[in-house]
């Protein structure tokens, strides 16, 4: 139970008012048009989406799972940061391709890249999936806040979920992406400042960096200080194959789109940047900040470990970072620490609410139900769907409750393991067609269910580790989409030439490039980039 002084209450309430006010302040800009409500008019300088990337990817559950990894595995846990590594490649490959396409959403990209019925089916499928997924993520992050408040203030678990997600929805509904992005900037600065401060305070509480190292060795856990401590190729707690998987997946994933579930958040920020160069810089620097953040967190978690070395209950030691702040900060600073936790929470939930509403509004409503919708109708529908995603997040959040780890299992494998390679192929291989891509998505949902739950339950398949499941799913899903691709016709050549000329994808596009040259459509890349920027400004 955390005790707040008068100054602590002041900091917390002042911060809530500042955040909601700074978001609502952009009400007039947000309601100007659909492009403003969902993409801030496509005119942002690189540092705004960059800060938003960092702030959105720092959520209430992030220090929990990161603390869990580092408490269990020491420095080996730092390789979890490789998850963000795909941005380093994507910033100069798929980010630029996607930005040139001017697609508002990843679902819209489907109807630019593929042709005919499968392209439309893929757009509808992905839009519906994204609405549900963002409800799930907002619920997941929301209930993490519920758990923190239950531990800190003895509140019922739903208080933290409902109160703080609703506060986010106020400015996400009134100002849309403008409110989200402006609030993200002050939230990103606040949280980075506190993250650094907690690590300094934690290191001091544990006696300084040298004392931490000595105490870890005295506890007979020297492997915690060695990030290259492997227990075998696939065996033990620290297998080498896990690290190899963690390097291969982000590296090659950066050549594709939607290879990581983070892509959908990034895609919105890519299209909100004012130029292609800005989009690249924002993705690269946002991810770099995430990796630096993790390195700073390690200090606080290792300090917590030497102060509390014998904890075995994951639900307790995953609160390491929160406990260092609440237990070691002096009165007055505790309230500021809670304000930073609110910043971490608000930035993620507000972004996710707006993202879920964008797929429901731009793709399902504006593309399928009312293609002639006015900007006023689009903004109104955007606000309604922000509210519906919020209510959906309450449903998922209350279902998750304290079973965060059980649901993490579901979240990771439901999503992208089997579609990882098709998501790369759609960018680098002209012959990969709409039917092949759609079959990969549908097959992935079915096969991951079989591999992860059904077959092990009946003893047909042994319980595999997550990285082993990844490789198995990749092969099994490929056995579906590769035959489907070759048994169906390539996409319409007019469509392929159009997407090639506009977006300049890398990889195996020979026949399409030759056709584009024959039609005299190929210009210099610089001219294409300039035209894309002019069109974006016009739309903004």
């Amino acid at each position: 139970m955390v005790h707040f002084s008068g100054l602590d209450y002041f900091w917390s309430i002042a911060y809530i008012l500042l955040t909601v006010f700074s978001g609502v302040l952009f009400y007039r800009l947000g309601k100007r048009s659909g492009a403003d409500f969902f993409l801030a008019g496509r005119g942002l300088p690189w540092w705004l989406p960059a800060t938003s990337n960092f702030a959105t990817h720092t959520a209430t559950d992030t220090p929990m799972w990161f603390s869990g990894w580092v408490y269990r595995s020491g420095m080996y846990g730092i390789w979890g940061s490789l998850f963000a590594g795909w941005c380093a490649i994507s910033a100069f490959v798929s980010t630029r391709i996607f930005r040139r396409s001017l697609a508002s959403t990843q679902a819209e990209w489907q109807t630019l890249r593929f042709s005919g019925l499968p392209a439309e089916l893929m757009r509808g499928w992905m839009a519906g999936w994204q609405v549900a997924l963002n409800m799930f993520i907002a619920g997941w992050v929301g209930i993490a806040m519920g758990n923190v408040c239950a531990w800190a203030f003895n509140w019922p678990i739903w208080y933290g979920l409902v109160i703080f997600s609703t506060l986010c929805a106020i400015y996400a509904m009134t100002s849309g992406f403008w409110g989200v992005i402006i609030a993200d900037v002050q939230q990103g600065i606040t949280m980075l400042f506190i993250i650094i401060l907690v690590s300094i305070w934690a290191a001091m509480a544990a006696g300084g960096p040298t004392a931490i190292v000595e105490k870890i060795q005295a506890l007979n856990r020297p492997e915690m200080l060695n990030p290259f401590h492997f227990t075998g190729f696939v065996t033990g707690d620290y297998p080498l194959l896990w690290l190899i998987t963690m390097i291969i997946v982000p590296f090659f994933g950066g050549f594709g789109m939607a290879t990581h579930s983070d892509w959908f958040v990034e895609a919105q920020r890519i299209q909100s940047a004012d130029t292609i160069k800005s989009a690249s810089y924002s993705i690269w620097s946002g991810a770099a900040a995430v990796i630096v953040r993790n390195s700073i967190w390690v200090i606080a978690v290792l300090a917590f470990f030497v102060l509390n070395p014998y904890m075995t209950d994951e639900s307790q030691y995953q609160l390491a970072w929160f406990r260092m702040g609440f237990e070691y900060f002096p009165p007055g600073l505790v309230g500021f620490f809670f304000a930073a936790i609110l910043a971490i929470h608000f930035s993620t939930v507000s972004g996710i609410l707006n993202l879920g509403a964008m797929y429901a509004t731009r793709d399902l409503y504006n593309h399928y139900i009312n293609p002639k919708a006015t900007d006023k109708q689009i903004v109104r529908m955007g606000r309604l769907w922000t509210l519906l995603v919020l209510l959906g997040s309450f449903f998922f959040g209350m279902m998750i409750g304290k079973d965060v780890t059980k649901w993490l299992f579901f979240a990771l494998w439901l999503m992208t393991a089997g579609t990882w390679l098709p998501n790369i192929l759609q960018v680098i291989w002209w012959r990969f067609n709409g039917w092949g891509y759609l079959s990969a998505w549908v097959a992935n949902l079915g096969i991951c269910w079989l591999v992860v739950w059904i077959l092990p339950a009946f003893g047909i398949l042994p319980d595999l580790k997550d990285f082993q499941q990844f490789w198995l799913l990749m092969v099994l899903v490929a056995l579906v989409y590769l035959p489907v691709t070759f048994l169906t016709k390539p996409d319409d050549m007019d469509r392929l030439v159009k997407v090639y000329v506009q977006t300049r994808p890398i990889g195996f596009w020979g026949p399409v490039r030759r056709e584009a040259e024959r039609r005299g459509l190929l210009q210099k890349k610089e001219e294409i980039d300039l035209r894309a920027e002019q069109e974006a400004r016009k739309e903004g």
Partner: peptide, 27 residues
């Protein structure tokens, strides 16, 4: 797993059906 999958399938298939109706109507 069953509840999570059901919700995800419900939304994904709803989107797919919207798309199919739109495509047929346009054609």
């Amino acid at each position: 797993v069953v509840i999570g999958m059901t919700v995800i399938y419900f939304f994904s298939l709803s989107g797919l059906i919207f798309a199919y109706i739109y495509y047929k109507k346009n054609k």
